[in-house]
Design a protein around this nucleic acid. Sequence first.
DNA 1: TTGAAAGCGCTACCAA
DNA 2: TTGGTAGCGCTTTCAA
Lengths: 330, 330
Amino acid sequence: MVTVHEVARVAGVSAATVSRFLNGTAKVSEEKRQAIESVIEKLNYKPNVLAQNLKTGSSRTIGVLTQSLVSGYFADAMAGIDEALQGTGYAPLIVSGHWHADEEAERIELLIARRVDGLVILSGKLKDAQILKLSQRVPIVAFGRDLSSPRAYGFCLDNYWGACEAVSYLIEQGHRNIAFITGPSDHQDALARLAGYRDTLAKHGIKEQQQLIVGGDFQESSGLLAVERLLESGQRFSAIFCANDLTAYGARLALYRRGIRVPEDISVIGFDDLHSSMYTTPPLTTVRQPLFDVGKCLGRAIVKMIGHEMLDIEVPQLNLVVRESVKRVD
Amino acid sequence: MVTVHEVARVAGVSAATVSRFLNGTAKVSEEKRQAIESVIEKLNYKPNVLAQNLKTGSSRTIGVLTQSLVSGYFADAMAGIDEALQGTGYAPLIVSGHWHADEEAERIELLIARRVDGLVILSGKLKDAQILKLSQRVPIVAFGRDLSSPRAYGFCLDNYWGACEAVSYLIEQGHRNIAFITGPSDHQDALARLAGYRDTLAKHGIKEQQQLIVGGDFQESSGLLAVERLLESGQRFSAIFCANDLTAYGARLALYRRGIRVPEDISVIGFDDLHSSMYTTPPLTTVRQPLFDVGKCLGRAIVKMIGHEMLDIEVPQLNLVVRESVKRVD
DNA sequence: TTGAAAGCGCTACCAA
DNA sequence: TTGGTAGCGCTTTCAA
């Protein structure tokens, strides 16, 4: 492996000058610049990032803590982060916490041991206090929590609002008996969606029916189970609001198995707008979470925070995307 | 940040001894061991990985080149790699080439500049020759190509065989007019699946109908379009073999739009077995690609290759998973 | 078993 | 504008 010194020697300059040329730290005379350039070319010299790291104390790496490597939801956000980091000289180091506080903490230690310059945290179970504490060691940008200290910034999407939109839409379409399949009860977003469901019902003077709210865990299987229970309970309902799209997929399958048509017999609405929701049968009406934009936002923010620049975040907004899984009833 | 020297000073030993203790490089007396341990504990000392890297010339990082950060297909493989790397001291550095040879080459340079100890390449458009060349600089394990030099190992799944299975199954179920929606024509796997389709038809004495083979690109939209063309062509067919699951989703939606039932009117079979294929309506019969296992295999292989150990790879096998999108006809 | 010392390849300071 | 030099924090000889 060729080093600065070798380049310097061949080009007849000092290593310091080569370094200066490389980093644009100071002016280098035209003559030497050319000499250096051609030697770098000839020797195919590539600076050793590891040595740069050691010297500068920075790894030019951003740690990204996700909760799942296989979830389309998080994948979108990661793609956004990746895009935002492109061309900044920072590379993302991705680890997964699997929705488990201990594992998250452990992975973050691993990230810090690798001297990441910043951390992006995607949801998870860590307490805000823990994150604040961590932020003393490394600047943090988080999604799914409200934080705004100088070294820890975080934002949420307005899940409550999104749920209100979904339920209002159902009501506008004439639905009165609306079932809700919840997400995990220890999940902030899931709770907000439930609250939105309840409040919107109340706002429209619709009495909430306890039996129409059934537990789920954001996975397809729970949607399937929930609908089966709903159906067996004998409750009447014309629409189901699913806490997320995955749940809606499961719900839809349960309905299909019983020969119940969507949306003719029962309407279904989801939350998230995963890619595949455009191609379900029927295409799913759902509340879109602009995760890719969220990722871009996070990526940009962490770079700015590292550079001690002002964070001018524009938090992306949710919006209802109407497709074909909801029917108007009277 | 506390350093070895500080630990050494407080513990009353030399830095070298601390290092030896940390790495188990040599015997350290019980007495000093305890002293060092307690000081490390007290000072909360964490070795600076960057410095270790510089010294040892290794970054304890594995570069992973994927083609898409949002594809469920690649995500599974990445999760497998992640699992295999767990506890080995190696962390994956993931970059995406977006199915573009130039971008792949560029990202790989970035990975090498960061001194990754090994490279895992997931498909892509790079030529085998390029990969072989690259492998002089860094050991490589690749998926989707057959390579077996000491520093570059690669394997494929038997897509041809998988396609034969799918088509044989359709034929067993009584189908004779089987349409095929292809993948991109410059994609190795897509070609193998097409060949499997053709050969299996031939093997059963079924004449291939040119009009039943329609172009696609592995995306949902192409499946949708393809079915529309198929339908408009007026050709008779009772089953569609889609080059991958995404295509099948699109095809299924096109059928749905026309009020054509699956599988009662037309059977559909896919390839890949993405997670969501279990929850489509009806659940999709498809050829399973065990991508998670592939990822585990790759992760283990690259670590072994770096350690100059024997690679004892057991290449995972495809298999047909029968669900509900194919009906028996007579 | 231990310590001293010499770097790994780079950047940044200081002096010229 | 340039070169010499001193480290960054660690590991690894070499001697003791």
